[in-house]
Structures are given as C-alpha cells and as structure tokens.
Simulated scan of single mutants.
Amino acid sequence: MSDDNQLDLFDLDNLDKEVYTIGRITNEITDLLGLTVNKKEILMWKDRFTYIEKHKNDFDSEEQYIDHVKAIPDVLRDPEYVGIHPNGNSIEFIKKIDKNLMIAVRINNKGNLVFRTSYPIKDSKLNNYISSGRVKKVK
C-alpha cells in the first residue's frame, strides 16, 4: 500500500480523535476474497481501543499487548492470511507478531469498513482456518 502517510497514527496514552483511519483494503485482498466494497478506508472508533482491552489477558504481558495493538495498522497493510467470517459480515486479517493477531473488520450496511475487534489466536486455530479454507494466504 503506497499511501500510508494518510493513515492516522494513534498514541494509546492520548487518544485525541473519535475516529481513526487505520488502514485501507487493497485490490489484492478484495480480489482474493471475491469482495466488492464501496470504501477502501478502514475506520476505528475511539471506543474500540477500550473494547479490545478485554483481550489483554490473552497476551503474555502488558508490553506484548501494547505491541500488538500498535501493530494493527501493519497487520491490515500486510496480512499473512485473510478470510471472511462465516456470518459474512466481517473480513478477518491475520498476521504473526509474537502471537497470531486476528483483526475483524466489519462491512457495514453503508459499505464502510469498520474495525470491530482484535485478539490473538493459537497456531492450532489458525491451522484449522487454513485447512478448512476459511482463510487464504496473501501472496
């Protein structure tokens, strides 16, 4: 993705905006998943940062949790795997940081791409997703 300079940077200690542009979906991913989306920008509302804190204990330390939250734009920009959630409403982006980080991005009824949640998944779950075809490797 060549236009990263238009992404919003966020400081977890000073979230000063209500909405952040944290990524853009690429044509490669929409083609891989057979999607048509109206908008390319992935938005994250400020309250989502508080929401994902409930997964903090899924990490080995607070530092690891913070590193993974800060990596969200990188996972969206350069995922290892992508898929569609079985309900059809969300795109899943997965990339190994220290743990496999999954990010769910909802496609809302206006065609906007909206960050929903982020949490680590075990290697066994990722392998099940791969073998079942739920996620596809991004080249």
Rank of each mutant, 00 (worst) to 15 (best):
D11H: 08
E41P: 00
N38A: 11
G34L: 01
D16I: 13
T36L: 06
D78I: 00
N14W: 09
I29S: 05
R24K: 15
K39Y: 15
M44T: 01
V19Y: 06
F10P: 03
F10V: 03
E62L: 12
L33D: 08
N27P: 02
L7C: 09
R24H: 08
V19A: 00
D47N: 13
I72C: 05
T21C: 11
K17Q: 15
R77C: 01
H85R: 10
P86S: 11
N14Q: 10
N89G: 08
D60Y: 12
Y51A: 09
T26P: 02
I52G: 05
R24T: 03
K54E: 13
T26E: 12
D47V: 04
K39T: 04
L33V: 06
H85Y: 10
H55F: 06
P73E: 07
E53R: 08
V69S: 02
T36I: 06
S61G: 12
G83K: 06
K40M: 06
T26N: 07
K56T: 03
W45Q: 13
P86R: 09
D58L: 11
L7A: 07
V19N: 11
F59H: 14
D67L: 10
P73T: 06
D58R: 13
R77M: 12
R77F: 05
D74E: 14
R48Q: 14
D60E: 15
W45G: 10
T50R: 11
Q6R: 14
H85G: 00
S90T: 07
D58E: 15
S61T: 14
S61N: 09
N14C: 10
P79W: 10
I52K: 06
F59P: 12
M44G: 04
Y81F: 15
H85M: 05
D47K: 11
L12I: 09
D78M: 01
D67K: 12
L76G: 06
V82E: 07
P73A: 05
F59R: 11
Y51E: 10
R48Y: 12
E53K: 10
T21D: 01
N38K: 15
E18I: 04
N89W: 00
L7I: 08
